[in-house]
Design a protein around this nucleic acid. Structure first.
Length: 914
RNA sequence: GGGCACGUAGCUCAGUGGGAGAGCGCUCGCUUCACACGCGAGAGGUCGGUGGUUCGAAACCACCCGUGCCCACCA
C-alpha cells in the first residue's frame, strides 16, 4: 500500500488514536475493496445473510439504529471473517405515514398543500424529497462502520419490490384472505387514515364520567312499574341511567343494554328508551358484554363509535348512526345543533344541553385508557369505514408452529410466549390506508357495474360490462410491504441467484416493539410465499433509555445523537459502548461505557505502536532485511513471521490466555452475548496484555546496547508478540473495526484488509495451565508487595532489599523483583538467606521477607500483617467449620470436599509462614 | 385484568448452588523512556424484605415491598 510507510513513519509521533483522522480513510478502503458485496453463489445454508430492518427513508440514525447496527455488524463481520459468504442486505422503507407527513409539513411551509397539488404531483414531490434526504441514513450507517452491501441498496417502493407486493396482494385476495368490509376502524384524524390495532397506543387520562338519564317510553310494552312520572330518577321506574366519558357519542346511540342475568333490569328488556336531545327510540337489549357492577349496569350502545358497541350492534342487528366524520367533526346525522362542531366542542355542547334538561344525574372524575395514534399522536376516533382487511388466522398458525418447533428461535426466549399468545389471539389486519404515498392497491373498480378486478395488470375495460376502470385510491399499510422484506429484497418472486444464495437469512435483529408489527408478519409471509422461515433466529435487543431512565425522545429533550457521540469519541467507542451496555433487557445509556470503548481503542493503538517500534529496534532482528533499509520505519512483519514461539513463562502464559479469549469471544458472538464479548475483550487487553504481559517483557524489548538475550531470543519474542497482537486485533475487529483495521495495516505486510482476513481460532495446544498458575501467583504477589510498599510509604522508585520465602516462584522471581521493586540480592532470585527479616509480607504460598527497614514506616507493616493474619485465620476457621460438618463431607461432591481440604492445607502453610 | 422483567458498592451494571466483581466517581501516590483518554495502591456492599429448599443460597422456591415494560373493546 503506497501510504503505509508514511504512516509507519509517523506511528512514532502518534501518541493517541485519532478516530476523526482514521475513520474516513478506513471506511473508504472498505467500500473500494468490494468485500461487502458477495457474489450470489452457493446456498443460503452455507452462506450468511442478514436483512437490515429498513430504516425510514428520510430518517436519520438514532440510538436504536446505532445499537442494532453495531450488533448486526458484529455478526456480519464475524461470519465474514469466519469464511462464510456474507451479505448484509441494505435498504430503506418508504414509511407511508411518516414520510407523507414530513412532505406535507414542508408543503405547508411553502404555503401549499397536498390537496392543492393533486395526487400525481404530490407523489412526484415525495420522490423528489426521497432523492434529496433518502441517503442521509445510509451515509450515517457508513460512519458507524456498518458493513452492509451498499452496492445493492433496496427500497420498499422500488419497481421490483412493487411487483412482489402486488403479487402477494393478488394471491391473498384470490385465496380469500384479503377482503373488503365496512367495519369499525381506528381512525387517525392526524394522518387522516385508518390505522391498524398495533399502531394504537393507550394513554391513561383523567376525564369526567357523566351519568345521564334516558327516559323510558311511557307505558309501552312493559310489565314494570311505569305508572310514575317519566322524570322520576328511580332506576326501576321510568328511566335508565347510563355512564359515559364521551357524551357526544350519545347522539349515535341506537340501543341501551343490560346484562341478561341482571335481575334488577330483566323487566326492562324489550322496552324502549328515548334518546335525549334526539328523540330516537332505543330498544333495551340484553347482552353478556355488559358488566352489571359498573355504574348502574346500564350501557348506552353506540355501534358506530365504539368497538365493543360495534360488536354488540352486529349481534343484535342494531342501526349504525355515524355522528362523527373522518374530519373529526360532528356529521349531519348528529343533528343541526351539533353538526360541524369538533368532537370536543360537541362534548361541551351536549353536556350543556343535557344539563339544561336536568338529565345529568352524576359527574365524577375518572381515570381510564384513551387510544392515541402512534403515528400522528392524535386521539383515535373509532368509526365505521369501508376498508381492506386481511384475515390472519390461517397465516398465523404455521408462523406460530415455526416458533414452537424451534425453526425460528427467539432470543432471549422470554419473548417466545408473548409471540405465541399473540398469534393465538390474532385478529384481522386493516391493511388499507387513506394516503397517497405507498403501494396503491391493485384493485380496479368498474364505474358502470359493480364489478371489481384484482390483478397485477388489470384489463383495459371491465370484463363484465366493458365499462371504464378506475384504480382503488387507497395504499397499503407500510408493514404490508415490510413483511416481504427478507425475500422481496432478493428478487422474489423471481428465482434469482440472490434468493438462492441468501434466503433464508440467518438472523433478524430488532427491538421488541416491532415483534408483532413486523417480525411476526415476516414469518407469516415468508412461510406462505417461500415455504421457508425468513430467518433462523430473531434477536431482540435492548431499548436504550436516556441516562435518567426516561425514554430517549426528541420531544422530551432526552435524545442523544449517536453521530455526535461518534464525532466526540469515535465510531469504535460508540459501538463498543452500545454493545457493552446491551443486555436482555432495557438499559440506560452509559456515557462511561462509550469512554471505556474509546480508552480501549487508544490502549490497543498504543500497545501495538509500542511493540512495533520496539521490535523494529531490536538488534539483529531487522538487520540485513533488504526490503527495509531503515528498520524503525519498516513493517517488521516482513522480516519476522508472526508465530507463537514461547521462550519464557510469560510467553506461555499470554499465549494460553489468548486462546481462552479467542474461544470465549467467538462463543459469545455466536450466542448473541455482545456485552460480554465486548467487555471480555477490554479485560484481556487491559488486565492481561497491557498491564502484565507488556510490562513483563519490556526488558526483553530493550534496544541498542541494553538489548537482552540472543538474536534468536529476540526473534522469538518478536514473533510471539506479533502473533499475539495480530490475533488480538483480528479478534476485536467485529467490535471495534476502525482501530483494528488501522493497526492491521501496520501488523500485516500484505496490504490486505483485516475485514477480509480469517477470524483467529483458539489453538488448544497452546493452553498451558501450569504457566497460568505460576504467572497468576506472581501477579498476586506483585500486587501484595506493591500494596505493602504503599502502606509503609516506601519511595516509589526505591528498591527494597528482600527475600522470597515461598515456593513456586522459581521462574518468576525476576518478574516479582522488577515489578515490585525488590532487591533480591543474588542472581538466584531468592535473596540473602542469612539476613534477619524486619518485616513479613504475606504472598501466595509463603511470604516475602523484607531485609532492610531504611525509611520505611514499619508500624504500618505490622497492621498489615495483623490484617493478613486475621483474614487467613478467618478463612481457615470457615473451611475448618465446613469440613467438620458431617453433612458437608458426606453430601457435597467429592471434588468440592477435596478442594476445601487442599485449600485448608495451603492456608495453614501461609499462616505458618506469616 | 393478564403477562414478562428487574431490585448487588455513591452511579451504571456483571455475577444462576461452594472463598462478593467491573467501569465511572472518590482517596492516596507516581511527569516509571506505549498510552496522563496514562500507571500503581486503596476506601466503599446486612446482594430489597420475610420465610422455605439444601451440607451450603446473591443465585433455587413462596409470599411481601418497590420499579419498569408489553398485551387487553369494563362504558
Amino acid at each position: 500500500h503506497p501510504t503505509m510507510s508514511d504512516r509507519s513513519e509517523d506511528l512514532e509521533s502518534r501518541t493517541r488514536f485519532e478516530p476523526a483522522e482514521v475513520e474516513p480513510r478506513i471506511a473508504a478502503r472498505w467500500l473500494e475493496s468490494g468485500l461487502f458485496h458477495p457474489e450470489p453463489e452457493g446456498e443460503a445454508g452455507a452462506n450468511y445473510s442478514v436483512a437490515i430492518p429498513p430504516p425510514n427513508v428520510t430518517g436519520s440514525l438514532h440510538m436504536g439504529h446505532a445499537l442494532n447496527g453495531s450488533i448486526q455488524d458484529v455478526l456480519v463481520r464475524y461470519h465474514r471473517m469466519a469464511g462464510r459468504r456474507t451479505k448484509w442486505i441494505l435498504g430503506t422503507d418508504h414509511a407511508g405515514i411518516a414520510t407523507q407527513a414530513q412532505v406535507e409539513k414542508a408543503l405547508r411551509a411553502e404555503g401549499t398543500s397536498r390537496q392543492e397539488l393533486g395526487r400525481e404531483e404530490f407523489v412526484r414531490r415525495v420522490w423528489e424529497w426521497r432523492e434529496h434526504y433518502g441517503h442521509t441514513i445510509v451515509e450515517q450507517l457508513k460512519r458507524l462502520g456498518a458493513s452492509c452491501d451498499y452496492s445493492e441498496e433496496r427500497f420498499t417502493l422500488d419497481e421490483g419490490y412493487h411487483r412482489a407486493v402486488v403479487a402477494v396482494f393478488v394471491a391473498l385476495y384470490r385465496q380469500g384472505l384479503i377482503y373488503r368490509d365496512r367495519y369499525i376502524v381506528n381512525w387517525d384524524p392526524g394522518s387522516h387514515s385508518a390505522i391498524s390495532d398495533l399502531e394504537v397506543e393507550e394513554r391513561r387520562e383523567r376525564d369526567t364520567l357523566y351519568s345521564i338519564r334516558y327516559d323510558l317510553e311511557g307505558g309501552a310494552a312493559g310489565q314494570g312499574p311505569v305508572s310514575r312520572a317519566p322524570r322520576s330518577s328511580d332506576l326501576g321506574g321510568g328511566s335508565v341511567v347510563i355512564a359515559t366519558v364521551r357524551p357526544e357519542t350519545m347522539l349515535g346511540d341506537t340501543a341501551v343494554a343490560v346484562h341478561p342475568a341482571d335481575e334488577r333490569y330483566r323487566h326492562l328488556v324489550g322496552r324502549t328508551a328515548v334518546l335525549p336531545l334526539v328523540g330516537r327510540h332505543l330498544p333495551v337489549i340484553a347482552d353478556e358484554y355488559v358488566r352489571a357492577e359498573f355504574g348502574t349496569g346500564q350501557l348506552k350502545v353506540t355501534p358506530a363509535h365504539d368497538p365493543a358497541d360495534f360488536d354488540i350492534g352486529r349481534r343484535h342487528d342494531l342501526d349504525q348512526v355515524s355522528v362523527i366524520g373522518e374530519d373529526g367533526r360532528m356529521s349531519a346525522e348528529a343533528g343541526e345543533r351539533f353538526a360541524g362542531l369538533t368532537v370536543m366542542e360537541a362534548r361541551a355542547a351536549v353536556v350543556a344541553a343535557l344539563r339544561e334538561e336536568g338529565r345529568i344525574v352524576g359527574e365524577e372524575s375518572y381515570e381510564h385508557e384513551v387510544p392515541y395514534s402512534h403515528r400522528s399522536g392524535e386521539r383515535i376516533e373509532p368509526l365505521i369505514s369501508l376498508q381492506w382487511f386481511m384475515r390472519m388466522d390461517e397465516l398465523a398458525a404455521p408462523a406460530a408452529r415455526a416458533v414452537r418447533e424451534g425453526r425460528v428461535r427467539i432470543v432471549p426466549d422470554n419473548h417466545r410466549r408473548v409471540y405465541l399468545d399473540w398469534m393465538a389471539a390474532i385478529r384481522p389486519w386493516c391493511i388499507s390506508r387513506q394516503l397517497w404515498w405507498g403501494h396503491r392497491l391493485p384493485v380496479y373498480y368498474c364505474g358502470t357495474c359493480e364489478h371489481l378486478h384484482v390483478a397485477a395488470s388489470p384489463p383495459e375495460r371491465c370484463e363484465a360490462c366493458g365499462g371504464a376502470l378506475r384504480q382503488e385510491e387507497d395504499v397499503l399499510d407500510t408493514w404490508f410491504s415490510s413483511a416481504l422484506w427478507p425475500f422481496a429484497t432478493l428478487g422474489w418472486p423471481d428465482a434469482t441467484p440472490q434468493l438462492r444464495a441468501f434466503y433464508p437469512t440467518a438472523v433478524l435483529s430488532t427491538a421488541r416493539d416491532i415483534l408483532f408489527l413486523w417480525v411476526a408478519r415476516m414469518i407469516m409471509m415468508g412461510l406462505r410465499f417461500t415455504g421457508e422461515v425468513p430467518f433462523a433466529d430473531v434477536y431482540i435487543h435492548s431499548v436504550i433509555q436516556a441516562p435518567d431512565g426516561r425514554r430517549m425522545s426528541k420531544s422530551l429533550g432526552t435524545g442523544i445523537d449517536p453521530l455526535d457521540e461518534i464525532s466526540r469519541h469515535g465510531a469504535d467507542a460508540v459501538r463498543f459502548g452500545l454493545l457493552a451496555m446491551s443486555s436482555s433487557q432495557d438499559v440506560r445509556y452509559s456515557a462511561e461505557k462509550v469512554r471505556q470503548g474509546q480508552a480501549l481503542a487508544n490502549k490497543l493503538f498504543n500497545a501495538t505502536r509500542f511493540a512495533l517500534l520496539r521490535i523494529a529496534g531490536l538488534p539483529g532482528v531487522m538487520d540485513g532485511n533488504p526490503a527495509h533499509p531503515n528498520p524503525t520505519r519498516a513493517n517488521p512483519t516482513r522480516a519476522v513471521e508472526p508465530a507463537p514461539r514461547p521462550r519464557a513463562i510469560e510467553d506461555r502464559w499470554i499465549l494460553s490466555r489468548l486462546q481462552e479469549i479467542l474461544a470465549d469471544t467467538a462463543a459469545r458472538i455466536e450466542d448473541y452475548d455482545f456485552s460480554h464479548a465486548a467487555l471480555g475483550l477490554y479485560d484481556f487487553v487491559y488486565a492481561e496484555l497491557c498491564d502484565w504481559y507488556l510490562e513483563i517483557v519490556k526488558p526483553r524489548l530493550a534496544t541498542g546496547a541494553a538489548a537482552q538475550g540472543t538474536v534468536e531470543d529476540r526473534e522469538a519474542l518478536a514473533a510471539t508478540l506479533l502473533y499475539v497482537l495480530r490475533s488480538t486485533v483480528a479478534l476485536a475487529h467485529p467490535v471495534i473495526p476502525f482501530v483494528t483495521e488501522e493497526l492491521w495495516s501496520h501488523l500485516d505486510g500484505t496490504g490486505e484488509l483485516l475485514a477480509g482476513a480469517p477470524y483467529p481460532r483458539a489453538d488448544v495446544s497452546l493452553i498451558d495451565r501450569d504457566a497460568e498458575i505460576e504467572l497468576e501467583r506472581v501477579i498476586e504477589a506483585v500486587t501484595l508487595v506493591r500494596g505493602w510498599r504503599d502502606s509503609v510509604n516506601a519511595p516509589p522508585g526505591a528498591l527494597v532489599r528482600a527475600r522470597i520465602d515461598a515456593g513456586g516462584y522459581e521462574s518468576t522471581a525476576a518478574i516479582l523483583a522488577r515489578l515490585a521493586r525488590l532487591d533480591l540480592g543474588d542472581g538466584a532470585g531468592v535473596g540473602d538467606a542469612g539476613v534477619p527479616s524486619v518485616a513479613s509480607i504475606a504472598v501466595p504460598c509463603g511470604t516475602v521477607e523484607v531485609l532492610s527497614a531504611e525509611g520505611l514506616d514499619l508500624a504500618a507493616t505490622e497492621r498489615r500483617r495483623a490484617a493478613a493474619l486475621a483474614k487467613l485465620e478467618g478463612e481457615i476457621a470457615r473451611v475448618e467449620g465446613k469440613l467438620s460438618h458431617a453433612g458437608f463431607v458426606q453430601r457435597a461432591p467429592a471434588e468440592v470436599v477435596e478442594g476445601e481440604r487442599a485449600k485448608l492445607t495451603r492456608l495453614r502453610g501461609e499462616l505458618e509462614a506469616l
